[in-house]
Simulated assay, not measured.
Amino acid sequence: MEKEKLTVDQVLSMDLPNIILYAAPVMISLVIIEWIISFRQNKDFYDGKDTIAATVIGLVNVGISAAIKIATFGIILFFYNLVPWSIPHTWWAYVLCLIWIDFWRYWAHRVAHENRFWWATHVTHHNSTKYNWSVSFRLGWTQHIKIIFFIPVALAGFNPVVFFICHQIEVLYQFWIHTEYIRKLPRPIEYIFTTPSHHRVHHAKNAKYLDKNYGSTFIFWDRIFGTFQPEEEQAEYGITTPVNSYNPVYLCFHEWIDIVKDIRNSKSIKEAYAMAFTRPSKLEERKNAFKDAVKNSRERKLSSINE
C-alpha cells in the first residue's frame, strides 16, 4: 500500500500542541523563584541585565519560530514524502523518534562547537558568564538553519506530527539542566540522561571541560563517541573571548561579525576558509599559524632579494 503524502496545510490543520508555549509561564516562574532564592542566599548566580538580555533573545526567538513555521514544516514534509516508507503513528513511535532526534541533536550540537560557521549560530547560548535557568532562553536567532541536521529524522519515516512533538520535548528538556542548585543525581540517571552536572561541564570554559558533553536529553552519546567529561572542578562559565555586552542583537551576531572581519583580512582563500570553518577552540592557534606563515614568506623574499 502506497504511503499517503501529507501537505503543510494538512499538518497545520491538525492543531499540534505547542508544548513550549504552554510551559513558558512555568519556566518564567521558576526563573523568578531561582533568582529570588539566589539573591537571598547571596549567591552570584544571576545578573539582572544578563537575565533581561536572555529573556529578550528568547522572546524574539519565539517570534522567529512562528514566522518560519510553514517553511520548517515544509522542509520536514518534503523529505518525509520523499521516501516510500513510514513508521506507524503509535506510542512506541514517539519513543523511537525521541531517541533518533536526540542522536542528531548530539551531532548538530557537536558540529556547532567544532566548526566556526555553525558555532556562530550557537555561541549566544554560551556567551553568558552566569549559569541559571534563564540561560536556557539564550538561543541564537540564526540557530534555525540547523533544521538541516534533522532531515534524517524525516527520511526515517516518522510522521511529522511525531517529529514536531518529540522535538518540542527535546527543547523543553534543556530548561531544567541549566542550574547550579541541582547537583549530582543518582548514578543510573547520571549514566543515561543529561543532567545539570553534565551540562555545567558543557557550559564551562575550563580547559579540561572544553568541547565536552554535547548530549541533549541522553548523555550516553557522549560516552559512546568519546566526548564525556564528569564534573570535577567548579565550572567557570562563558566563552574564552568575553563579549562584555548585554545588547541582545550583538549577543546574537558578534561571531558572524568577527567571521566577516577575519575573512576580509585573510591573505589567501585557504586562510579565509579556515577563518570560516576552523574549530573555535583552535582559532587563535590557526590565526597565529597564518601570521607566522606570512612573516616567514616575507623573510624568505627579503632574503632572496638580498642575495
Score class of each variant (00 low, 15 high):
residue 14 M to Q: 14
residue 15 D to I: 14
residue 17 P to L: 04
residue 18 N to C: 08
residue 18 N to A: 12
residue 19 I to M: 14
residue 20 I to K: 12
residue 21 L to T: 15
residue 21 L to C: 02
residue 21 L to S: 13
residue 21 L to V: 11
residue 22 Y to E: 05
residue 24 A to N: 14
residue 25 P to T: 01
residue 26 V to L: 11
residue 26 V to D: 13
residue 26 V to A: 14
residue 27 M to W: 13
residue 28 I to L: 14
residue 28 I to W: 00
residue 28 I to N: 00
residue 29 S to E: 06
residue 30 L to F: 09
residue 30 L to Q: 02
residue 31 V to A: 10
residue 31 V to P: 05
residue 31 V to H: 03
residue 31 V to F: 00
residue 33 I to V: 07
residue 35 W to A: 03
residue 35 W to R: 07
residue 36 I to N: 06
residue 36 I to P: 13
residue 38 S to D: 08
residue 38 S to K: 10
residue 39 F to W: 14
residue 40 R to H: 13
residue 40 R to G: 12
residue 40 R to Q: 12
residue 41 Q to V: 12
residue 42 N to Y: 06
residue 43 K to I: 11
residue 45 F to V: 13
residue 46 Y to I: 05
residue 46 Y to S: 01
residue 46 Y to M: 09
residue 46 Y to Q: 09
residue 53 A to R: 05
residue 53 A to E: 04
residue 55 T to I: 12
residue 55 T to H: 12
residue 56 V to W: 06
residue 56 V to N: 09
residue 56 V to P: 03
residue 58 G to V: 07
residue 58 G to T: 03
residue 60 V to N: 07
residue 62 V to N: 04
residue 65 S to D: 13
residue 65 S to M: 11
residue 65 S to Y: 08
residue 67 A to F: 06
residue 68 I to N: 10
residue 69 K to F: 10
residue 73 F to V: 12
residue 75 I to Y: 08
residue 75 I to D: 01
residue 78 F to T: 15
residue 79 F to I: 04
residue 79 F to Q: 03
residue 80 Y to M: 04
residue 81 N to C: 03
residue 85 W to C: 07
residue 85 W to T: 11
residue 85 W to G: 11
residue 87 I to W: 04
residue 88 P to V: 07
residue 89 H to T: 03
residue 90 T to E: 02
residue 92 W to P: 00
residue 92 W to T: 00
residue 94 Y to R: 00
residue 95 V to M: 07
residue 97 C to M: 07
residue 100 W to T: 07
residue 100 W to I: 15
residue 101 I to R: 01
residue 101 I to W: 10
residue 106 Y to F: 11
residue 106 Y to T: 07
residue 107 W to A: 03
residue 108 A to E: 15
residue 108 A to Y: 04
residue 110 R to H: 02
residue 113 H to F: 02
residue 114 E to A: 12
